[in-house]
Nucleic acid binder design. Structure first.
Length: 267
DNA sequence: TCTTTATGGTGAG
DNA sequence: TCACCCTAAAGAT
C-alpha cells in the first residue's frame, strides 16, 4: 500500500536491517532470477527513497531499483521468516532479517545514470530535506493549467503523493479538487506544501495514513482512532463530513476517484 | 467460488 | 482515453 511515506519507511527499515554486510538474494518466483543472482552475496551499502521509487546500492556498478506500483508489497521479517510464496519476485536475507517482494511494478538492476534519470524526472519530495522544496513545488504546480487534484498526482509536480493523500490534503487546505492549478496563489501553494510535509511525516512515523485530528472525533491520540475515523474524505462518499455534516462527494479525476466536501472545499 | 477492488504507472491509439 | 501489468483480500453470489 504505497504512497511516499511507505517507500521511505522501507528504505529506512531495509537500510537498518541489511546495510553493511553481505545479503543473500534469490527469486522464488523466478522472474528476477538473473538479477537476484547478481546481487546475491554482495554488501548492501545504502538504501534511498525518492518519492515512490526505491533504490538499493550494493558494492557494484548497478543498483537495485524497485517500484511497488499499486499492488506491490514488501514483507519484512526477523530471523524466523516463513517460507516465501511462489509469487515472491525477490527475497533478501541475512542472519537477522528477511524481506519478500511481491507484485512490484518494477524490480530491476539499473546503472547509476538510469537511477539519476528516474530521480531527475521527479518533482520535490516532501520527505527529503531541501530548502528549495516549497518554492520548487509552487513553481511546478502553478505552471499547470490542469485541476489541482490532477496536478498533485503528477510525480513531476511533487513526488510521493498518492490517491489518499491528494484527497486528504486538499480537504485539509479547503481547496476544491477542480481548482485550476495555475490559479492557486503563492500563499495557498506554500500552505499546501507545508501540509503535505506534515502529513507525509506523520505517515512515515506511524506507517499508516491518519489525517484526522484526533480531537475532532473525541480522541486524544492519532493512534487511538479506529479504522473508520482516520480519514476525512477518502472513500467516504455519501457519509457526512466530519466538520460540517455535508455528504461527501465523489468524482473521477484522470481515471481515478477523488472525494471532497462541497461545503469545506468550495469552488 | 466467483468478481471486484486497491495508497501506481506505462504505452498505444 | 483505454488496455494492460502485477497480487491478495474483500465483497458478492
Amino acid at each position: 500500500m504505497p504512497e511516499g511515506h511507505t517507500i521511505h519507511r522501507l528504505a529506512r527499515l531495509h537500510g537498518e536491517r541489511f546495510a553493511g554486510s553481505p545479503v543473500r538474494a534469490w527469486s522464488p518466483q523466478g522472474r528476477f532470477a538473473a538479477g537476484a543472482g547478481e546481487i546475491d552475496g554482495r554488501v548492501l551499502l545504502e538504501t534511498a527513497a525518492h518519492g515512490k521509487h526505491l533504490f538499493y546500492r550494493f558494492d557494484d556498478e548497478r543498483l537495485l531499483y524497485v517500484h511497488l506500483g499499486l499492488i506491490g508489497k514488501f514483507r519484512t521479517f526477523g530471523p524466523d521468516a516463513p517460507d516465501p510464496t511462489h509469487t515472491t519476485r525477490l527475497a533478501l536475507a541475512n542472519d537477522r532479517a528477511t524481506a519478500y517482494l511481491i507484485g512490484p511494478m518494477s524490480c530491476r538492476l539499473v546503472v547509476a545514470g538510469e537511477a539519476d534519470e528516474i530521480v531527475g524526472a521527479l518533482g520535490p519530495d516532501p520527505l527529503r530535506r531541501g530548502r528549495r522544496g516549497a518554492a520548487e513545488f509552487a513553481a511546478r504546480l502553478r505552471r499547470r493549467r490542469l485541476p489541482v487534484g490532477v496536478a498533485l498526482l503528477d510525480q513531476r509536480v511533487v513526488a510521493g503523493i498518492g490517491n489518499v493523500y491528494r484527497a486528504e490534503i486538499l480537504f485539509l487546505e479547503g481547496i476544491h479538487p477542480e481548482t485550476p492549478a495555475n490559479t492557486v496563489d503563492e500563499e495557498s501553494a506554500a500552505r499546501l506544501w507545508e501540509t503535505t510535509v506534515v502529513q507525509l511525516r506523520l505517515g512515515l512515523r506511524s506507517g499508516r495514513i491518519v489525517t484526522v485530528d484526533p480531537r475532532e472525533v473525541g480522541a486524544h491520540r492519532r493512534s487511538q482512532l479506529t479504522k473508520d475515523e482516520r480519514l476525512y474524505v477518502y472513500h467516504r462518499d455519501g457519509l457526512p463530513c466530519r466538520r460540517c455534516g455535508t455528504p461527501i462527494r465523489r468524482t473521477e479525476m484522470g481515471g481515478r476517484a477523488i472525494w471532497w466536501c462541497p461545503t469545506d472545499q468550495p469552488r
